[in-house]
Amino acid sequence: MPFREFSLIRRLSTYFYTRRRLRLALLLALPVGWLVVVYGGSLGSLLLNSFFRIDSFSGTIDRTPTLETWRQVFTDANMAVAGRTIGMATAVTIASVLIGFPLAYRIARFTSGRAKTALVLAVLIPLWSSYLVRVYAWKLLLASEGVAAWFFNVFGASSVLGWILSLPLIGGPSLSTSSLGQFLVFTYIWLPYMVLPMQAAVERLPESLLEASADLGASPATTFRRITWPLILPGVAAGSIFTFSLTLGDYIIPTIIGNSSPFIGLAIYSQQGVAGNLPLAAALAIIPVVVMGLYLTGARKLGAFEAL
């Protein structure tokens, strides 16, 4: 007999072996189904709700399509909230790149073996502890009677701290109640997410390219500008997706650090939970979706998706 008797499982496996498309479809059915129904459906529902409005008198949702809710979104107060959030996200992203890059470069280029593992772990270890614990720890560090203030005092520089805190946009009564403090905490929290993609990008950069550039007469600065930076930009873009989107959507840090000025997340929570104004909350929620959509399009152009 030329053929062996195969069990049911073997026969199924053989059946699927040649039908690759079917295999792929079955494999993806569950996650794609989840994505479409749960995620896509929720977003669609959100968008739909933003075209309803809340009835002034009864407080119930009036389901006739209208643009009135969207008109409310474009008021000065709400635009300020959006601007504040986007501004902070941008600042945090830029700072993460500036701080993260030397670190990533050093780890990728100048360490190996045990030292490298130790450094990568050092970058990652904060992620193992609770987010809230870390934020509360920073609140203590930045308090007006906290470690940061004490540091300034020890160096006799408390007047410098006072000057920093008196600056209009970023200052406040203490570091912990200022935008500057918020910015510092955001940058700290999301830094690992920037360092790792950048480190990967630098590691993928062949040493010989940098040598070639130097060999052809480029100073280290020129080599960085013309060779290193363009080639690691996809990695930077990939890391920036994390820092930007995570800051954009965060609603916990602004309630613990800072002067309580609302960010988009808090505004949405207030409208939905506190006021029961679902249409306005939905409309506000669309803002980060649109912003991230634009951001991701830009990041994709820079090659971030390949770098991920």
């Binding site: 107060a77 300020a80 609302p262 006021a275 104004n277």
Partner: peptide, 17 residues
């Protein structure tokens, strides 16, 4: 003035508006 407006306006106040 209903509570709904309290929410929107107080949020704006906290936001400096």
């Amino acid at each position: 003035v209903p509570y709904r407006r309290w929410v929107t306006d107080y949020l704006a106040v906290i936001g400096g508006r």
